[in-house]
Design a protein around this nucleic acid. Structure first.
Length: 570
RNA sequence: CGGGGCGUAGCUCAGCCUGGUAGAGCGCACGGUUCGGGUCCGUGAGGCCGGAGGUUCGAAUCCUCUCGCCCCGACCA
């Protein structure tokens, strides 16, 4: 491709709203343009990179037995009402009406559509298992889109759905898809990790996420290198915490704690360790108001809470609700004397505490010397602790380490949640009718490309991994008016094209400085520079974007050298 | 949805407080210059100052409403 005839416009300045490197560089390098908040246009240049990733994804999913298809982006409300998600999905589901007033939504995912289709077409165990996938534009009306393609509202995603007669069969496909994902991310040369995950709004049992490790990632993951445990922090289990020393029970006393509404303030005021202070958090849920007692220095994992309650939503109670439940302003809640009907759940971390401090459900007052059994008893004990770096791994390998990741893939065992709702049954060998057992497998296309940039860039621009680079090679001709240079560059361009190499030929009438800056910015892995001085000696300069190592190569030997570099592991 | 901020040339922004002829840099066009790391000089095109209403002799500037965008939070295959 000749740059002079191509659609590739770089910018020196950045729109001020780009905060993370991938977003900034994708705009500057002319890969994407913003059309609306969280909605982007992919330029021809950017689209090439996405196309490369799509090809890798297709290759691996096809090998894993997937069959490519395509489903509509606009879906009838009827299907979503049938699965119950029309109500449950919330405002993220973009809804619209057609001219007749019929309700539709923009598909954020496609369980309803695929399950309905498979349910109609397949009816026998003999037709199973089957694994269908598509690469398609999704729409989720995110509350706050940000970071360019990392969290857009409209985005490209590969989603696959598998249908089975048995859990074992589902597991086989699940493992095969996990293996395919590994191959995909390895083929992209990404530093990633697979972690246990919560199933969220999609539902189901087993679930794993594929995280590309990056500081700018929106998810926190914890892992332990010794025992191999790795999980999204939302899901993470924790080994036994060190138990505090047991004390002889003392009398419970109410003490004045004016203005001390945080654990830290209370601990300081009373001169005790924060570990001695418990906090009681009030949540509003569709199951009613819930009070959670948590160790003073730790956070509640709201996902664990939601799963425990089997709740549709869980949110911190507002001030009015807190007052109603505790009779006190925020900051003085405790497990003793809560309003009627408030469910009290205590985290396991506070179980071994003796003579602890908690709010007195009274303005400016706390209790000291509180003991379980004698003074209070929760309706339920549970693990609601949000894992943190330094916690013991549940597998016993020592401390958990925390890192940040970009969620690029998420696979689920759905079970029969959708097949039952949508009536997707099969006749079993025994003649009975059973719901199909399903799995689903998502992979963010744009997000993966953004993650690749997040992991591969420097201060000058993108450093594409060869498999995702829009072009493999950038041929750069310096002196446009020098006939010998032009002729040599044209000859090389012809050779590269003939050899089937993805080449971008910078034949623009620009100064060398501009071309070099652009070359660094757009990050094509291999660069070949034809300039007057070296050409006089029959040589051209070759270099790699990643290492910046330069070498002079006789112009006759360039093609062979390029082939060598492309074959080498990146 | 709560809190904060911003909408002025294609892009990045100044001007607004204290109302009086709409600006800069980059980009673009033209001429010259330069030619291995975003040359330099000159000329020029380009803006119902997001939209509506109000105050005023007069509004980019003050007031009200509205739309859009961004940041923090809650949220999230």
């Amino acid at each position: 491709m000749r740059w002079s005839h191509y659609y590739l416009y770089t910018t020196r300045e950045v729109p001020a709203d780009a905060e993370v490197p991938s977003h900034r560089l994708m705009l500057r390098a002319g890969l994407i343009r913003k059309t609306a908040a969280g909605i982007y246009t992919y330029t021809p240049f950017g689209w090439r990179s996405l196309a490369k990733l799509k090809a890798i994804v297709r290759r691996e999913i096809d090998r894993a037995g997937g069959l490519e298809m395509s489903m509509p982006m606009v879906q009838p409300a009827e299907l979503w009402k049938k699965s119950g998600r029309w109500q449950r999905y919330g405002k993220e589901l973009a809804r619209l009406e057609d001219r007749h007033g019929r309700e539709f939504c923009l598909g954020p995912t496609h369980e309803e559509v695929i399950t309905t289709m498979v349910g109609r077409d397949l009816s026998s165990f003999r037709q199973l298992p089957i694994n269908l996938y598509q690469i398609q534009t999704k729409f989720r009306d995110e509350i706050r889109p940000r970071f360019g393609l990392m969290r857009g509202r409209e985005f490209l995603m590969k989603d696959a759905y598998s249908f089975h007669t048995t859990a074992e069969c589902l597991d086989t496909t699940y493992q095969a898809m996990a293996a395919a994902y590994r191959k995909i991310f390895e083929a992209c040369h990404l530093d990633y990790t697979m972690v246990e995950a919560d199933t969220g709004a999609i539902g189901g049992s087993d679930s794993h996420e594929f995280m590309v490790l990056a500081q700018t990632g929106e998810s926190e993951v914890v892992h332990n290198a010794t025992d191999g445990y790795a999980a999204n922090v939302e899901k993470a289990e924790i080994g036994a915490l060190r138990a505090p020393a047991q004390e002889e029970a003392v009398d419970r006393r109410e003490v004045a704690t004016p203005g001390a509404s945080t654990v830290k303030e209370v601990a300081e005021l009373l001169g005790v360790d924060v570990l001695k202070v418990v906090k009681t958090l009030l949540y509003q849920t569709d199951q009613g108001v819930v009070a959670v007692v948590m160790r003073g220095d730790r956070e509640v994992n709201e996902v664990k809470l939601q799963n425990l309650l089997d709740a549709e939503f869980v949110a911190m109670a507002n001030e009015a609700a807190v007052r109603e439940a505790t009779g006190a302003p925020v900051g003085f809640a405790g497990p003793i004397g809560l309003a009627e009907g408030v469910r009290l759940i205590a985290d396991e971390s506070v179980r071994p505490l003796t003579n602890f401090v908690c709010g007195a459900n009274k303005d400016d007052a706390h209790f000291t010397g509180v003991n379980w059994g004698r003074d209070a008893e929760p309706d339920q004990w549970a693990d609601l602790l949000l894992a943190a770096a330094g916690d013991p791994s549940p597998l016993g390998g020592g401390e958990l380490v925390s890192s940040r990741g970009i969620e690029v893939g998420h696979i689920f065992k759905l079970g029969t949640k959708y097949s039952e709702a949508m009536g997707c049954d099969f006749h079993s060998e025994g003649g009975g009718k059973e719901p199909m057992i399903m799995g689903c497998y998502g992979l963010g296309i744009g997000r993966t490309v953004a993650a690749a940039i997040e992991q591969n860039h420097d201060e000058d621009g993108i450093i594409w991994p060869i498999p995702l680079a829009p072009f493999q090679l950038l041929l750069l001709s310096l002196n446009a008016k020098d006939e010998a240079v032009t002729a040599a560059a044209e000859a090389l361009y012809g050779q590269f094209q003939e050899a089937g190499i993805d080449v971008l030929f910078d034949d623009r009438k620009e100064r060398p400085g501009v071309k070099f800056k652009d070359a660094d910015l757009i990050g094509i892995p291999i660069r070949v520079v034809v300039g007057a001085k070296s050409l006089a000696e029959g040589q051209v300069e070759m270099s790699l974007r990643r290492t910046r190592e330069r070498e002079m190569v006789a112009k006759e030997g360039v093609l062979a050298r390029v082939r060598e570099l492309l074959a080498a592991p990146a």
